[in-house]
Computed example of a mutant assay.
Amino acid sequence: MLDAWIMTPWIAAVFAVFAWWFATGAILIVVRRSDAGDRMAHGRSVVLAVPLLALGIAGLIVTSGDLTPLNIYLSFGSVLLIWGWIELAFLAGVITGPERGDCPPGLTGWPRFVRAWTAMSHHEIALLLGLLAVVVASHPAENPFGLWAYVILFFARISAKLNLFFGAPRINTEFMPRPLAHLKSYFRQGPITLAFPIGVTLLSAATICFGERLVSASDPATAVGFALLATLAGLATLEHWLMVVPLPDAKLWRWMLPVPKTHQEGTDP
């Protein structure tokens, strides 16, 4: 009975949506609680999550050699663990960049881009190292779906950052943690730029491509894999549109987060 369920593409799609929502919420909860803690709270949360990173890498290694529906689900989840740890380290301010100050008012053009890069360059390098680790862990890849999931997440994150830098009509900073407060000064709220249609077009094309592969899949395992990828690419596309369309997307997670404490001046530990 369970085997029949996990081999159903629409179950895979539901799983991808839930995993995306749950993983995002879990990271936000940890970051919000760390914000309310002492100065070492964010660092502790990253260190305590290292076993999850190791579990993700191990899971990817174990599941990459055999193309079965269960292995595809597990490789997908393993990649989310790897990606989630890198995102947690970023939001915790542990892996960001050497520049920790606000963007100077009036800074434009190439100098602004360079300063923004130095503010988060370590995170970009971590994402690249994560991609390298996923490639190595999943080689030889009888099951390439974990690798493709990471590639989707990687491209979507880079595209989203570029849109926040160049300009987007809607920028939600509600969940921005204290260690990254300075990054708000690098965001530009305004009309969309060329970065938006490029990102949305490529992600939409990926969604359609994976959807076509899903429809033409010749076996249940492949169908499950492409259902996961098509859904993930679709969610990434949706996240981009939420930078333009005024929808209350923050409500998806706001209800589950602890109320942030107000830190009065001079009272931070």
Results as ranks from 00 to 15, higher is better:
residue 174 E to W: 00
residue 213 R to A: 09
residue 156 A to L: 07
residue 180 L to G: 03
residue 92 A to M: 08
residue 68 T to H: 05
residue 62 V to W: 15
residue 209 C to Y: 15
residue 11 I to V: 14
residue 253 W to A: 00
residue 49 A to I: 02
residue 208 I to F: 14
residue 109 G to A: 07
residue 242 L to W: 15
residue 244 V to R: 10
residue 152 I to N: 00
residue 57 I to C: 07
residue 49 A to E: 11
residue 67 L to E: 10
residue 42 H to F: 10
residue 128 L to C: 11
residue 214 L to F: 13
residue 253 W to M: 01
residue 8 T to Y: 15
residue 112 R to D: 04
residue 230 A to V: 06
residue 118 T to A: 09
residue 141 A to P: 15
residue 148 W to T: 00
residue 217 A to V: 08
residue 126 A to V: 07
residue 141 A to F: 08
residue 126 A to S: 09
residue 204 S to C: 10
residue 224 V to D: 00
residue 83 W to P: 13
residue 62 V to T: 08
residue 226 F to E: 14
residue 61 I to A: 06
residue 106 G to S: 05
residue 204 S to Q: 11
residue 150 Y to Q: 00
residue 24 T to E: 13
residue 44 R to N: 10
residue 38 D to P: 15
residue 236 A to H: 04
residue 223 A to D: 13
residue 50 V to Q: 12
residue 143 N to R: 02
residue 243 M to E: 08
residue 45 S to A: 14
residue 52 L to N: 03
residue 129 L to M: 12
residue 5 W to C: 03
residue 216 S to I: 09
residue 111 P to C: 06
residue 110 W to F: 14
residue 219 D to V: 03
residue 151 V to D: 04
residue 250 A to E: 14
residue 85 W to N: 03
residue 140 P to F: 04
residue 201 T to Q: 11
residue 245 V to I: 13
residue 127 L to Q: 07
residue 241 W to K: 01
residue 65 G to T: 07
residue 253 W to R: 02
residue 23 A to W: 14
residue 245 V to K: 05
residue 171 I to Q: 11
residue 103 C to M: 14
residue 228 L to K: 02
residue 100 R to Y: 05
residue 82 I to T: 03
residue 2 L to C: 04
